[in-house]
Design a protein around this nucleic acid. Structure first.
Length: 357
DNA sequence: AATGATACTCGGC
DNA sequence: TTACGGCCGAGTATCATT
């Protein structure tokens, strides 16, 4: 039986600021300012004191400030310092790694640990508390940890109690934990699947578990059908393993809304250079290029194309991005607010050169 | 019809 | 004119190939 932990740093950016600025006890709102007007931009994350007042990630900064004022909240609004968060995250990840046989970082603030050979199930909570304590002592940041027999359960366990939570789901308790949840809460079930399930009269995970494998596969296809069948039983055999990044992107806000190709092209070139820098740093080649185009009414559109062979060429990014932009402008009358470039189908350079021979 | 690849959107933080 | 970032991976639709 495997023992898997999922750790999630609590409102990470806000906690990071709290830890270095002695802001304990104050609502903190970390913001991404677009630079267009004074408070143009969105909230990246807010700590729990700010959340209690209704401020949350994704909210326009202006709205968050208005809410804070209305509620007489002594909130502090800070610009996001991504370099600092990345540096801090990497230190914390290094620390967590020590406690794991296998380690899988999922994002800047989340990771899975396979601790099967390190502890027995009964001692897993103790071990998690040690990890929590180390992170707290060394970096002043709390985290929430979930423990279960696999990644699915560990992840859903860590979600179930935040912040500063610790939830252990013993193998024999998996059913009790899962069955009462709405089927839509299964990690990996999106809106469409959820609606489809409701249409079949399936509301809870328990409802889902009564359905046969063949019936689910008929409705959802072989792969997703099997996933749902297993997930409803708390089964998940995906290993904890380091995963390569799948995509890299750079996106930005235009100085003003426009559909002038030259203006947008200039911004895309700038973003392409930035993206290319990241690409070289990661020593990756790409095979697909996308543009991300966000209109004045905040609709997101993407266009992408796949090349015949992998490359890391800056000119290829620029050329294809502009080509995709022109196609978009030709088929849509939209005016743009933001734009971005993305590369995907990434390959390790060394692998690639081997493959070519 | 089934499978994998590609294109595109959604949602979380 | 009430009014919005910058990412990422998951999810889904559709195309291509067999």
């Amino acid at each position: 039986m495997r023992i898997i932990m999922h750790a999630d740093l609590d409102s990470f950016y806000a906690s990071a600021e709290e830890a270095r600025k002695e802001l304990k006890g104050r609502p903190i709102v970390v913001c991404m300012f677009s630079g267009r007007t004074e408070d143009s931009g969105a909230v990246a994350t807010a700590n729990y004191l700010a959340r209690a007042a209704g401020i949350h990630a994704g909210m326009p900064i202006v709205n968050a400030k208005r809410m804070a004022e209305e509620k007489k909240l002594d909130a502090v609004f800070l610009p996001a310092d991504m370099d600092y968060y990345r540096m801090l995250s990497s230190k914390i990840m290094d620390l967590m790694q020590i406690y794991a046989d296998k380690f899988e970082q999922r994002s800047i603030d989340e990771a899975y640990m396979d601790v099967s050979s390190k502890v027995a199930y009964e001692k897993a909570a103790e071990s998690a508390n040690i990890i929590k304590g180390e992170i707290k002592n060394n970096f002043g940041i709390t985290c929430s940890i979930g423990i279960g027999p696999n990644k699915l359960i560990a992840k859903m366990a860590s979600r179930s109690k935040k912040p500063d939570g610790l939830t252990v789901i013993k193998p024999e308790d998996v059913k009790d934990f899962l069955f009462k949840l709405p089927a839509g809460k299964i990690f990996g079930v999106g809106t469409k699947t959820k609606e489809k399930l409701e249409g079949m009269g399936i509301r809870t995970v328990e409802d889902l578990s009564t359905k046969g494998l063949f019936e689910l596969q008929e409705t959802f296809g072989k792969k997703r059908g099997l996933f749902l069948y297993n997930a409803s039983r708390g089964l998940d055999d995906r290993p904890v393993e380091t995963v390569e990044r799948q995509q890299i992107s750079s996106i930005g806000t235009l100085k003003e809304n426009t559909r002038n190709p030259e203006t947008i092209k200039e911004k895309l070139y700038e973003l392409a250079e930035e993206l290319h820098g990241k690409l070289l740093k990661e020593k990756k080649n790409f095979r697909s290029v996308s543009v991300i185009l966000i209109t004045e009414n905040l609709e997101t559109h993407t266009k992408s194309m796949t090349l015949d062979a992998a490359t890391n060429s800056l000119d290829a990014i620029k050329e294809k991005a502009v080509q995709l932009l022109d196609e978009f402008l030709k088929e849509t009358p939209a005016v743009l607010r933001r734009c971005g470039v993305r590369v995907s189908s990434l390959d390790d350079k060394r692998h690639l050169s081997l493959k070519e021979f």
